[in-house]
């Protein structure tokens, strides 16, 4: 009896812990959402209200009217999408060669590529800046996209997967007269769909949330990305300059930038998790 009671108590404790985890994780997101819908007078009310008394869209209107928010979103989405498509295309081609083809220097080249996993991205920032300045491509989408395409993780994940594809499968295709390109397209790519989804999500998310490079490479407002625009107009920097930060519009902007990411995450959760597990293995 006592044993059973103890078991129940432990279970209860575990449930309480789970609820605490959920509350701590979600409360800031909820608070952002609630604040975004509060009119100016209400947002600073004390004690804090978890339900807006007079919910309003005005903060969203204010953000869209006074800032290039739509433009930043467009830039972020387009840059991340194009970068992802390029990365999947060139990484899967290269990974196929690394995993399944014999050629001089295969191991050496692959080792050099992997060695870059150790080199922090900050090291490349100044030379990249000089390079893009030199060809007059600062402040362009091109500058936001291209540096992502030199990434290593995608090649690493896909090479790992392609190596696991049985040789027999390829031999059968070769006997049937399929060329390398054909094998890549109609055998390797379909087989690798889960890995490709994981690479796509990693690439998209890292480009979407990238901050340092877009901050440096883009200075005109029309070419800003979402993370940079939000940081510069709704971050502490504006508060420091004297006027009190306007939290209503800031939370509306934050919410608009967050909803797409959370929606994508909820739909593609499986691939997110897979992507993370794959980056985790890379060490």
């Amino acid at each position: 009896m006592n044993e059973k009671r103890k078991k129940h108590l432990v279970r209860l404790l575990l449930y309480i812990l789970m609820i605490v985890c959920i509350i701590v994780s979600f409360a800031p997101i909820l608070w952002m959402t609630v604040s975004a819908f509060k009119p100016e007078g209400e947002i600073l009310s004390y004690p804090p209200q978890w339900v807006p008394l007079h919910p309003t869209w005005s903060n969203f209107g204010y953000v869209l009217k006074n800032f290039n928010f739509a433009r930043w979103t467009f830039n972020s989405v387009v840059a991340a999408l194009i970068a992802t498509i390029i990365v999947i295309f060139i990484d899967s081609l290269a990974a196929f060669a690394f995993a399944k083809m014999k050629f001089r220097g295969n191991k050496t080249i692959y080792a050099v590529v992997l060695s870059m996993l150790m080199v922090p991205i900050q090291v490349t920032i100044v030379p990249l800046y000089l390079m893009f300045a030199d060809v007059n491509l600062l402040n362009t989408l091109t500058a936001l996209i291209l540096p992502t395409t030199g990434n290593v993780t995608g090649v690493f994940i896909l090479t790992g997967f392609f190596r696991s594809v049985p040789r027999d499968l390829l031999d059968a295709a070769i006997v049937d007269g399929a060329g390398s390109f054909r094998i890549w397209w109609s055998i390797m790519l379909p087989l690798a769909r889960p890995s490709i989804s994981a690479v796509a999500i990693i690439t998209f998310m890292s480009n979407w949330t990238n901050f340092l490079w877009p901050l440096i490479s883009v200075s005109s407002d029309a070419s800003r990305t979402l993370p940079v625009g939000i940081a510069q107009f709704f971050g502490g920097q504006s508060g420091v300059s004297g006027s009190a930060p306007q939290y209503g519009p800031a939370m509306a902007a934050a919410l608009m930038a967050t909803i797409p990411a959370i929606a994508i995450f909820l739909f593609l959760q499986r691939y997110f998790v897979k992507g993370i597990m794959m980056t985790g293995i890379k060490g």
Partner: peptide, 27 residues
């Protein structure tokens, strides 16, 4: 409810770093 808990705990990770900054600035 463990699956739901995982989802909630992971959720902040998909938010942009600068948005995280703005949210906590307010908090």
């Amino acid at each position: 409810g463990r699956t739901a808990t995982r989802t909630f705990v992971f959720m902040p990770y998909v938010i942009m770093s600068t948005v995280v900054g703005v949210i906590w600035l307010w908090i």
